[in-house]
């Protein structure tokens, strides 16, 4: 079976830490930064578990601010 690997890039200055991407992810890849904040004081999203990403782009679809770019490769 072809394996799929994905990667998510979050525009951390644009992110408002709404957590919708964290909930939408089917593989529990994303989380909000527990302590770090961006210039506007939001706990931005990041890939906590990058190896689990399948590049389904659910996070990108639900992001209200268009902060998320998704990449995918077939191995």
């Amino acid at each position: 079976m072809a394996k799929i690997k994905g990667a998510v890039v979050v525009n951390k200055e644009r992110c408002k830490g709404c957590e919708l991407c964290v909930v939408a992810c089917p593989s529990q890849v994303l989380a909000l930064q527990p302590t770090e904040v961006n210039d506007r004081g939001y706990h931005y999203a990041f890939m906590q578990n990058p190896d689990a990403c399948i590049g389904c782009a659910s996070c990108g679809l639900v992001c209200p601010d268009g902060c998320i770019t998704v990449y995918k490769v077939k191995l």
Binding site: A7, N11, A57, G66, V70, K72
Partner: peptide, 20 residues
């Protein structure tokens, strides 16, 4: 299998981004 994230983040692998 581990794969370096920078090998995935390439323009040809793009599947979703902010609308133009």
């Amino acid at each position: 299998m581990h794969m370096d994230i920078n090998e995935i983040i390439k323009p040809e692998n793009l599947v979703y981004t902010k609308p133009r």
